[in-house]
């Protein structure tokens, strides 16, 4: 028999290292053809940080995204940005790049203000041009940088950011472990085959508060990938160890979800802006996965009226629990 069930999983996730300083630095060099180099220690491991940091730099400097090159993760030339972990790089390296770009921007604005003879606070940079208030001027950013260089002024910026945290008291754990938190709710629908014990995830709705989504498609990609990883965690994956030896050190015996196991995921981006984040951003890397197994196991409990206290919910385990519960019912004379 196939039974359907629905489950909710909620979570909060502190962005950055727990109760410890974890700063990131960045350099921005605004070049005389109007292009930009960002130097950051932030390792892009496929999650998209170099893209996000380029967007933050481009936005801040008023140039096209395509005009920004991010050089990342080379200790010979880039400043320390800490680890790509703890869902911290958009918030922390994002702030470092924002600060570095802001300083380079100030140099350009000062140069433009001198040319135009207006106060710097009335000047903006946008689309490669200098704007006076709401109006574009005839002056390009490129021209201003060339002028700065001719006067011996380099349009460079260095920025760093360390989230405002405090160490946790060793006896009571009281303190401020994180400067900001991401939040999420996922709802999973499952179908459980009571004969085979196979749990099929039919749909997942995943609503994530990430602060400002710097790149919404990338946020959705993170959410969808997190859900697929969560399906593996809930239902399939287990490193089997016997006497300290891993029994399944291969993808033929260590089962992970494939495209056949991952259903439609409905991502929802909730943007509760973080005042201390770059353009209000927080993070999403880990939160994407955190509540998925919880939502799935709650959905299985809903489907079967049986709760599982041990992960993963393999078919063997599901069948064994169903059998145990039937036997118990018979013993109770039901």
């Amino acid at each position: 028999m196939k039974k359907r069930g629905f489950g909710i999983g909620c979570m909060s996730y502190g962005i950055g290292n727990t109760g410890l300083p974890n700063p990131a630095g960045a350099f921005v060099d605004f070049l005389d053809d109007g292009t930009v180099i960002v130097l950051t220690g932030c390792a892009d491991i496929g999650q998209g940080s170099s893209t996000i940091l380029a967007q933050i730099a481009a936005e801040t400097l008023g140039v096209a995204f395509e005009d920004v090159v991010v050089v990342a993760g080379d200790t010979g030339v880039t400043p320390d940005a800490g680890a790509t972990s703890a869902s911290r790089q958009t918030y922390i390296s994002g702030n470092a790049v924002f600060e570095a770009a802001r300083k380079a921007r100030q140099e350009v604005i000062a140069g433009a203000a001198a040319v135009l003879g207006v106060p710097p606070e009335e000047i903006n940079l946008k689309n490669g041009r200098v704007w006076h208030g709401e109006e574009p001027t005839s002056l390009s950013i490129k021209e201003v940088i060339s002028k700065c260089r001719s006067e011996g002024i380099l349009t460079l910026g260095h920025g760093w950011f360390n989230p405002a945290t405090t160490r946790l008291d060793p006896a009571t754990g009281q303190g401020i472990p994180y400067a900001t938190y991401a939040f999420a709710t996922q709802v999973a629908e499952v179908e459980v085959d009571t004969e085979t014990g196979i749990v099929e995830v039919k749909r997942i709705v995943a609503a994530h508060d990430v602060g400002r989504a710097i790149n919404p498609q990338n946020v959705e990609g993170q959410i969808e990938s997190g859900c697929s990883m969560g399906i593996g965690y809930a239902l399939l994956e287990e490193v089997v160890v016997k006497e300290g030896e891993i029994q399944n050190p291969a993808f033929s015996t260590y089962l992970m979800p494939t495209a056949m196991d991952v259903p439609e995921v409905y991502p929802i981006i909730v943007e509760e802006l973080e005042p201390t984040g770059p353009y209000g951003a927080k993070g999403v890397g880990e939160p994407a996965l955190v509540p998925t197994a919880a939502a799935i196991t709650n959905a299985v409990a809903d489907a079967l009226g049986l709760r599982f206290y041990d992960l993963p919910l393999t078919p063997e385990r599901v069948v064994a629990e169903i059998k145990k519960s039937r036997e118990k019912k018979e013993d109770d004379g039901q």
Partner: peptide
Amino acid sequence: TGQELTSSVGIAKTLEAAWARALEVMPG
């Protein structure tokens, strides 16, 4: 840990948004 949350606390919004969408896409 005794931290007062002052801003960007979106959990209630994610709960309502996820539930509303789930009602649309999960007929059961």
